[in-house]
Amino acid sequence: MLEIKGLKVKLEEEDKQILKGVDLTVEAGKVHAIMGPNGSGKSTLSYVLSGRDGYEVTGGSATLDGEDLLELEPEERAALGLFLAFQYPVEIPGVGNMTFLRTAVNAQRKARGQEEMSATEFLKVIREKAKTLKIDADMLKRPVNVGFSGGEKKRNEILQMAMLEPKMCILDETDSGLDVDAMKLVADGVNALRDAGRGFLVITHYQRLLDHIKPDVVHIMADGRIVKTGGPELALEVENNGYADILAEVAA
């Protein structure tokens, strides 16, 4: 589904190489996790895949179901089924959460040549999904992420994912800043979306989240590269011994 080959990325404004050749394939129905020390390039990878400005691809490719992602505008990637749950969700004063979501859902439908969702249908669906994520009516009415707590912002990301039903979901440190209960809610939200047609790339710092969202494959990223790939046991190894051992082993 998501196929990344030799992806090299530098900052547009600076002569700084951040991704130094990333290879990664996520198959439909699978959950892949990326772990790695701070600054290793995990967020950069997620931003480059979703089309954020400020980066220059200097080599390699990234495709979603065979379509070249890197050629597309961010909104086109979204319509194709790519979704990024942001590490730092953006606050947008003056734009109501509900208006935002309805605009997004219908824009994607329009781009795919599908019929727009009616206001009533949309309301029905969003109420249902919001409820399972414990997002109340007030949060739906408020401006996007404005005045939301860290945990509320992350739940709001998952709500968007649930409404947009993307086929490839990237979650960037969705667990950071969450207490155990909130993490459980988020994980349940993600697990509810797991199915044979959908791929997940879960970026996390900690094993914690992976107790709730069981990965099929775990990658370790360091200094702009995937340095080791394994099964769920790799995450446990990181949890117990930190990154030092793995990095030393790779360097050797």
């Binding site: 089309g51 935002f100 997004a104 824009a107």
Partner: peptide, 19 residues
């Protein structure tokens, strides 16, 4: 904010208008 909206599928002109 513009990128956030676009990453959810809202085309740039519409996103600009919304903002």
């Amino acid at each position: 904010a513009l990128f956030y909206l676009r990453s959810r599928g809202v085309p740039s002109p519409e996103a600009t208008d919304l903002l």
